[in-house]
Structures are given as structure tokens and as C-alpha cells.
Design a protein around this nucleic acid. Structure first.
Length: 958
DNA sequence: GGGCCATTTAAAAGA
DNA sequence: TAAATGGCCC
């Protein structure tokens, strides 16, 4: 398809945006579903073909990898792969990272810096915070590390560097002194104590990162900004910069954008103030106005034509977002038919709510006559932990589902273990990697020895890895808890891998080799109950490495200096400038003296060029080792997008509202539309919460459901919940934006669906057949409960999530309700399989149809113990009652007795005081028949598992 | 050093 | 409710 053909598919507003003069800064305000990506890609194509701007001088910035990839795909179709790959296209972080590798020296970094992920920076800050604990306690201040992290992150988003903070540290007044007896001032001084502590931790944290030759995510942008600000020549290649989701930029990102555009001043941004939902991480909608001030000739264009949703979904969404009176008025039109009115339902309890959604999904699939399938549904949550009851409801109905962005691939322990070794090879100064690698697999080098090693390293001015090698070689004396012998399974491995790395071995082979050396699979088997899925993840990491090796499009071809080709010769000749010489002269490290500003422009540019070239050109071979490219890709890719799992398209998606931005589904369901959730109880900006609901609603193409429970389990107790005021207000303004009637999916409804989704309508016969089948196989989800009982304990559907997580391999406490259900199930499918448990060193042989309940010690001194005791005896009573009503034989054992259980032929309930703490229930029979993973016969954790047991990457649904 | 238990605490969003 | 922490013991 040529650019011209593409232009023909644009509407008038889109066309204006695409054709807009490149020299006049442009703001495209684009509502949801208005085709902004189309406009953006088309504009890029237009810049290249009609304005002869070369692709490598175009910079396109997105917020997510997903958006970047989508743009890349569309551009490839439009202008071909070759030109697309020349465009500097990526997230803010990726673009900064690439330039920082290239010009590291200019901002005082080494190009092998490691990107410090959130986990590691949390660890660092946690340690720093500990040193202030006593002091804070003395002032009666509680300072959570999350607070510190977010404050530091916010400071960085606003462009505050640790250098700026260091000055205030010198004030030298001891904290808390400025306080007077006046009560109102006390709080003030609390705040200032916290400010000081945060500032000090910030400074220390930054120093640690520098020592580790490491940057965290915020640093990438911050240092990127610094690079472009201090060295304008670095951005000379840029003729046009385009920024997507501009309403989400923070101050630092905005300034970065301005610096990249410093020469050309050609900027196109796309954004929508109504979809600004990231204020909490310092996004500034204000940047729209700021841009207009900074670039006074900026023009605005509106895209208000929506191509996604039915008219009724649009009006419902507008009814929500327009409640904000301070908002810039903006509207949405659609040519789509009205369609079924969005559903609003209240249900008594979260289980009912989940069950309603699950059964509704089933019904819609049937009543649409097969036009809809699982993959067409998304359930959008305010926050992830709401997914539990949803997941179990879907599971119970046998609906396949996946959690979008549930647990991040690169944050998994097994993946991080391997990455740690590789990071250590690439950057020996990166202490977090050292700390992890040194004792994985376990070598008996614990916290104590590690801190000893680190201290030695500091004392000798060596990297920890050098210290360890020297100890191994007898070049320096061993440390106190002798460690040399333990290093035989570490130093040789490191050396072997390092040699391999220096030969530029492919990272995937490097990993394979490492796995072998470490016998990592064996280690996982020994230590992880769910080692199989973890091993799968390791394999997935190898796949990812292979993908990177095969040349996923990099931001730029590393060796070419980006500048006007006519100047190429000069660049190349300058490339011979001796790097070491520059360093010796202190030029590379030194900050450019300010006085040169304004005058001696030419000299300055020449100077800049010297250092640019010397900082980059000569070392590109080292800079972009295969390993480094792989590590960078790992650290910058989030989520699970690595895997491109095809059968994901056949699953119902569960996602947060935030993660859903930019995406769309035929049917959207939003549970928990309640006060305290929408808006979230801890949200600072109610308007932002409203916009979040708006974003969620506007993801829907054809059908929209909002539900609400009148009671919900929160923080371990059931609390009453009220409908969200956003919805109440919308209803007050217009009764008709919602209905409590579920759509009947009549022939005309199906017609609308077919039209909006651009699918063909099924025949009436087909629909009738599907409905008949549905009626035959489906029972009412809560009437058909497996546990009929009048007691509140058993009134709702039983807790299948507890069951399934047990099957996954962990052992959990079960509620009485779940336990009785499990027991009944296992009686239906009796089994003789037994499971071994260890408690206090004893091994118990327990038939798998045995429930073990924990009871607290009878003494019960503390209030919490007493509560638990009461609850437990209540549970026991109910369990008893329920099981006897089903004529399930019950035997109750107490403490030392459980050994006997293996002899018991039928189901039993084991109750035990917590001193003997039996705390697990084996439930093999429930799902074992389906051939899924079964509870291991080997070592089993008793008690709360303190490791996470999440579904393996790519679903692995039961 | 690491396993195990009891007690405490926290509970949002992402690159 | 379940994850994290802290103390105790081997």
C-alpha cells in the first residue's frame, strides 16, 4: 500500500493532521478509538515521502513497548522494513538507553551500565532506610519504603538530581530541633524530618547506583535529558520528533523531548487529556499548555470521530467523563448504531458478582451463535488483587482465561538468577547481581559472608568478583568465615562464561552453558515445588535470547554516526581521536565550563564533536556486545509480551484498567464499580479516577458491563460496599445510559454486533443450536452449588481458588467451606495417593482425601490468638455439621496423633494445635484426573508458602 | 546458615 | 487473606 492509498482512508480531521506542515508544532488531541496510531504512522510516512525527511532523522516516542511494536508493524506495512528500522522508534527509556550507551562518558557513565530494576532499587532503599529506623522511631515517625521510593521517583520525574539535594544535606541542623512547643508546628517539623531523611536516602541511593555503574528506570530518562541538554550536538540528527500519549509525559520527559527537538523545533504530539491516568507517577497534563508556551506557534487539531464503539457505549462513557467540570470540553461522534445499552448490575457478594460475569460470558458466547468467543472478552479491574474471585469463577465455569501483565516474566526468581550471572559478566561492579549469583545455587555463602566480601572489595578498591577470584587464587587471604572452598563451584564457572562472552558467544548459548555448569535444573527441583514451570521459564528466556540475536530491530545501526551524511568524513577522521588521551586530559569526564555559552559557537561545536566521536565511535564493538544487547532488551521489556502465545487469543482476558489503555475488546466487563474502588480509597485525584473509568469503558466495541457487589471481602473481613458515585451521577443526569437488563441478543442485537465487529452474522439455525446446547449443559451457577446449606459458611460457591492453588503444588490453609467441598469431591473420585508432609521434623503419611486444619494453641494469651481460636472452633463446628449432613465420616485427630492418619481408610479431618502446626491440605484427586500437575510426593512446604506460586508464563490454566 | 513457626502488617497503577 | 518479618532452634 502506498502512502497515497493510505491517505484515502483518512477522514478530514485525520487528513489535516497528517498533512500539517512539519515546521509548525502540532498537538493532535485524539479521543479514544479515533485512529491516532493510524494518523501518527501516516504522518511519519508523509514526512518521509513528501517532505524528504530521512527516516533516521525522525524520532518517534511511545510509552510502552507494545505501542512501539504496533507502530513499527504499521510503518513496515506503509514504508517497508528498511526505512522503518532507520527510524528512532521506541519508548522513552529505550531511546535514552541506546544514546546513553553510545555517549556514556559524556555524562560520567560507562557504557556497560546495568539497568537496575524496581526490585533491586527497592532492596537498596530498604537497606538505607534501616539505618534511619531508630532515629525515625525516636520521633514517632513511620516511613514506609514504598513512600521513599515513590518520593525519590517523583523527584526524578521533576528533574531533581541528587546533586541538587546534597547541598541541603549540609545544613547541619540536627533534625527535629526547629520545633517549638506550639502543637501546629509539630506536624510541620515531622514533614521536614521526613523530607530530610528522604533527601539523604536519595543522595546515598544515587551514590550506590553510580558505584555499581547502574541506572534505574528514572535515571535513564534523567541522564538522557542531561546528555541532550549538555551536548546539543548529540541531537543534531533529529529533524522531527513525534510523541504518543503526550498527556502521560512527566516534566523530565517533556524536557528531554524539548532537548531532542532543540535544533529542529519540529514536534508532533498526540494526546488526550481525558485519558490522563498516570498523574500518580508524575505525569503532567500541564505539559500540553507548557508546550504551547514554549513553542508559541503550536497548533491544535481534534480527532473526535470514534471508530470503535457503539453509540450507547460512547454516550455512557461521555456521561462519566463529562462530570468533570474543569475539563476542556471535547466530544466523540460515531457512525456506529446505538447497540445494546450498557449493563449495570448490583450483586450481593463478590462471588455472586464473579459468577454472574462468568455465566454471562458463557451465555453471550452461546446466544451470539458462535459470533463471540472467549478471546472477545476482557474483565477490567481497578487493581490486580480483585482478580482472585474472578479467576476462580471463570475456572469453575471452565472458561479459559489469562491475566494480562499479571506477573512479570523478568521479575521471576529463576529468570533473575540467570540474568544475575550475565549482568555480573557484563558489569562486574553491579553488586545486586553479585549478591544473587554468589549463593545460587546455594553454596553456603550467606548474608554474613557476602557483606564481609563486599567490605573487603571496598577496602581493596576491587569489584566483589575480583575479590572472590583472588581469594580463590590465593592472591589475597580468605575472609573470616572461610569461603575459598565454596568458591570452586563459582569462580571456574564465571571464568569459563567470561571467556565465552569475550568471544562474543550468543547469549542463548551462554545461558545454556551456564545452566549446565550450575546444574540449575537440579537446583530448581530441589528447592522449588513448582520447578517444572520455573524451568519452562528458563527455557523461555533462552527463546527470548534467540529472538534478540536474530535481530529484533534495534534503534539504530550502531556504527554510523548520526548526522548529515555530507559531514561524514569529518566525523570519521575525528574518530581517530584517542580515547585514552581525552580521558587523561580530563575532557571526557569533565563537564563543559558554562562560560562558553553564547559565544565561540563554532569552537564549541568542534569541541562537542571531538568528545562525541571519541566517546562513541571507537568503542562500538565493545559497546554493543551481543550479551549487552540481550540484557538491555531484557531489562526494558516488561510484561509477558515475550511469548506471543497463540492460544491467548482464545482466552478471556483479565487486566487492570491501566494496562488496558490503548487496547480494545468487543465486550468489556468492569467489576467492583464501588466507592473505595472507583475512585480508589487511596487515590489523591478523584478526577483521574473518573478518567480511568472512562478509559475502561471506552475499550468496549459492542457490549459493556459494570457490576457492583454490596459486600466484599477486604483486608480479611467482609465490608459493605456502595455503588460508585461516578455511576450514580451519570444515572442522575440520564437514567438511560445504563440498564439492569442483560442484552437478550435478539436477531437485531446480533446484527449490530456483526456490524460493529465487522463479522458475519450467524444463521438463526446455528444460534438456536448453540442456545439449545447451552441450556442442556448449563445450570444456574449459584443454585447448583455443590454445597447446599443454610449456614452462612456454605451459602456461596466454594472457594475453588484455594483448591486449585493446592493442586498447583503449594499447600494452603483452607477455609472450612473449601475443605468440605474438597472432601466431597475427593469422595466422588477416591484415590489412594498419599502425600508426605513434614512438621517439626516428623514426616507424616497422609491420605490425599484428608483435610488438615490449623488450630491455634489453647492458651490464647493475645487478642489475635483468641480471635483465631474462636474462628477455628466455629469452622470446625461447621465443617463437622456439613460433612455429617452429607454422611461423610469424620475423624478428628489432635496433635501427636496425625501419624496415625495413614491407616485411616476414609476421609478425615485433622485438627491440631498450632504447636504441632499442621497447615496443609492435599487435594490431588480434584484435578489429577485431568492429567495436570499433581502435588509432589517429595518435600512439601508446610505453613504459608513464602514464595509466590503463580501460573506459569503463558497460562497453563487448569 | 537455613528451616520453621508465630506474629505483624498491608492491601494501586508501570517502564 | 496472605505475604513479610523476626525470633528460635538445629
Amino acid at each position: 500500500m502506498t502512502t497515497e492509498d493510505y491517505l484515502n482512508t483518512l477522514n478530514a480531521a485525520q487528513l489535516r493532521a497528517v498533512m500539517h506542515s512539519p515546521d509548525i508544532p502540532l498537538q493532535i488531541l485524539a479521543g479514544p478509538g479515533s485512529g491516532k496510531t493510524k494518523v501518527l504512522t501516516c504522518r511519519i510516512a508523509h514526512l518521509i515521502s513528501k517532505h524528504s525527511i530521512s527516516p533516521q532523522s525522525i524520532c518517534a516516542v511511545t510509552f510502552t513497548n507494545k505501542a512501539a511494536n504496533e507502530m513499527r508493524e504499521r510503518l513496515t506495512k506503509l514504508i517497508g522494513i528498511e526505512q522503518t528500522n532507520q527510524i528512532k522508534l521506541g519508548t522513552f527509556h529505550a531511546i535514552c538507553s541506546m544514546f546513553l550507551r553510545k555517549y556514556a562518558k559524556l555524562v560520567g557513565l560507562d557504557s556497560n551500565f546495568t539497568i537496575c530494576d524496581a526490585d533491586e532499587s527497592k532492596n537498596i532503599i530498604k537497606k538505607l532506610l534501616k539505618t534511619y529506623r531508630d532515629e525515625l522511631e525516636a520521633h514517632n515517625i513511620v516511613l514506609a519504603e514504598a513512600t521513599v521510593i515513590s518520593r525519590i521517583s517523583k523527584a526524578k520525574a521533576k528533574g531533581v538530581t541528587s546533586d541538587g539535594l546534597r547541598r541541603r544535606e549540609k545544613k547541619g541542623i540536627s533534625r527535629g530541633e526547629g520545633r517549638t512547643a506550639d502543637g501546629s508546628l509539630i506536624e510541620q517539623s515531622f514533614a521536614s524530618i521526613i523530607d530530610d531523611v528522604v533527601a539523604e536516602i536519595h543522595v546515598d541511593y544515587a551514590a550506590i547506583l553510580r558505584r555499581n555503574n547502574s541506572l534505574d528506570f528514572d535515571d535513564l530518562v534523567l541522564f538522557g535529558k542531561q546528555l541532550f541538554a549538555e551536548h546539543p550536538t548529540v541531537s543534531r540528527w533529529c529533524r522531527h520528533i513525534l510523541v504518543d500519549e503526550f498527556q502521560d509525559t512527566n516534566t523530565t520527559q517533556y524536557e528531554l523531548m524539548r532537548h531532542i527537538a532543540a535544533t529542529s523545533r519540529c514536534v508532533t504530539i498526540v494526546g488526550d487529556p481525558d485519558q490522563s491516568i498516570y498523574g500518580w507517577r508524575s505525569a503532567e497534563v500541564e505539559n500540553l499548555a507548557r508546550m504551547k508556551r514554549d513553542l508559541p506557534n503550536t497548533q491544535q487539531l481534534f480527532l473526535e470521530q470514534n471508530y470503535r464503539s457503539t453509540a450507547s457505549i460512547i454516550s455512557c462513557s461521555l456521561a462519566i467523563v463529562s462530570q468533570d467540570k474543569s475539563r476542556t470540553p471535547k466530544t466523540l461522534h460515531t457512525t456506529h448504531p446505538t447497540g445494546p445499552t450498557p449493563v449495570l448490575r448490583s450483586l450481593p457478594y463478590e462471588q455472586n458478582e464473579s459468577a454472574f460475569l462468568a455465566s454471562e460470558i458463557k451465555r453471550l458466547v452461546a446466544y451470539s451463535g458462535g459470533m463471540l468467543s472467549w478471546g472477545d472478552f476482557v474483565i477490567l479491574l481497578r487493581y490486580n488483587s480483585l482478580s482472585r474471585s474472578i479467576e476462580s469463577a471463570l475456572q469453575k465455569e471452565g472458561i479459559p482465561n489469562r491475566v494480562l501483565n499479571g506477573h512479570k516474566f523478568f521479575e521471576r526468581l529463576e529468570v533473575k538468577d540467570i540474568l544475575a550471572y550475565l549482568q555480573l559478566l557484563d558489569n562486574p561492579l553491579y553488586v545486586p547481581a553479585f549478591m544473587r549469583a554468589i549463593n545460587v545455587p546455594s553454596r553456603g555463602i550467606g548474608e554474613k559472608s557476602v557483606s564481609e566480601l563486599l567490605a573487603t572489595a571496598q577496602r581493596l578498591g576491587l569489584s566483589p568478583i575480583e575479590v572472590v577470584e583472588k581469594i580463590f587464587d590465593n592472591t589475597i587471604p580468605d575472609i573470616k568465615p572461610a569461603v575459598k572452598r565454596k568458591l570452586t563451584s563459582f569462580v571456574p564457572h564465571i571464568r569459563r562464561s567470561r571467556t565465552s562472552m569475550q568471544k562474543r558467544t550468543r547469549p542463548s548459548d551462554l545461558i545454556r552453558d551456564l545452566l549446565q555448569l550450575l546444574n540449575y535444573e537440579g537446583y530448581l527441583m530441589k528447592t522449588q515445588p513448582d520447578w517444572e514451570s520455573r524451568w519452562d521459564n528458563v527455557q523461555e528466556l533462552i527463546n527470548f535470547a534467540s529472538q534478540v540475536e536474530m535481530g529484533t530491530p534495534m534503534l539504530f545501526d550502531s556504527d554510523q554516526p548520526e548526522d548529515d551524511p555530507s559531514e561524514g568524513e569529518e566525523w570519521n577522521s575525528l574518530a581517530e581521536f584517542d580515547q585514552d588521551q581525552l580521558e587523561d586530559d580530563g575532557i571526557v569526564e569533565a563537564q563543559r565550563p558554562r562560560q562558553a555559552k553564547g559565544k565561540e559557537k563554532q569552537t564549541e561545536e568542534r569541541y562537542e564533536r571531538h568528545i562525541l566521536v571519541s566517546a562513541s565511535a571507537d568503542c562500538s564493538a565493545i559497546r554493543d556486545t551481543p550479551l549487552r544487547l540481550f540484557l538491555q532488551a531484557s531489562m526494558l521489556s516488561t510484561g509477558t509480551e515475550v511469548q506471543g502465545n497463540e492460544n491467548d487469543t482464545e482466552k478471556v482476558t483479565i487486566s487492570t484498567c491501566h494496562a488496558a489503555k490503548g487496547l480494545e475488546w468487543p465486550i468489556v466487563m468492569i467489576p467492583a464499580v464501588e466507592k473505595g474502588t472507583f475512585p480508589s480509597a487511596r487515590a489523591e485525584d478523584v478526577h483521574e479516577e473518573r478518567r480511568l473509568l472512562y478509559v475502561a469503558c471506552t475499550r468496549a466495541k459492542a457490549l459493556l458491563y459494570l457490576t457492583h457487589s454490596t459486600a466484599r471481602m477486604m483486608s480479611g473481613e467482609v465490608r459493605p460496599k456502595e455503588l460508585s458515585e461516578f455511576v450514580i451521577t451519570a444515572l442522575q443526569n440520564s437514567q438511560t445510559v445504563f440498564t439492569d437488563q442483560i442484552p437478550c441478543l435478539s436477531a437485531s442485537d446480533r446484527e449490530v454486533l456483526a456490524q460493529v465487529l465487522n463479522r458475519s452474522s450467524p444463521s438463526d439455525a446455528e444460534v438456536a443450536r448453540k442456545i439449545a446446547e447451552y441450556n442442556r449443559t448449563t445450570t444456574n451457577p449459584w443454585d447448583g452449588s455443590a454445597v447446599p446449606s443454610s449456614t452462612p459458611w456454605f451459602s456461596s460457591t466454594y472457594n475453588k481458588s484455594a483448591v486449585s492453588s493446592s493442586v498447583e503444588g503449594s499447600c494452603n490453609f483452607l477455609t472450612a467451606r473449601a475443605a468440605s467441598s474438597v472432601l466431597q469431591d475427593s469422595l466422588k473420585a477416591p484415590t489412594t495417593a498419599t502425600t508426605l508432609f513434614s512438621t517439626r521434623g516428623r514426616v507424616l503419611n497422609v491420605p490425599s482425601n484428608t483435610a488438615l486444619l490449623q488450630l491455634p494453641t489453647a492458651g490464647a494469651e493475645t487478642a489475635s490468638k483468641q480471635r483465631k481460636l474462636k474462628q477455628s472452633s466455629l469452622q470446625q463446628t461447621h465443617l463437622h455439621a456439613n460433612l455429617s449432613s452429607h454422611r461423610v465420616p469424620v475423624t478428628v485427630y489432635s496433635d501427636p496423633k496425625p501419624d496415625v492418619v495413614s491407616e485411616t481408610p476414609q476421609s478425615s479431618v485433622c485438627a491440631t494445635p498450632s504447636t504441632g502446626a499442621l497447615s496443609a491440605i492435599p487435594v490431588v484427586p480434584v484435578n489429577a484426573a485431568k492429567g495436570k500437575r499433581r502435588l509432589g510426593m517429595g518435600r512439601t512446604t508446610v505453613g504459608y508458602p513464602n514464595k509466590k506460586f503463580k501460573a506459569p508464563l503463558g497460562g497453563g490454566g487448569q
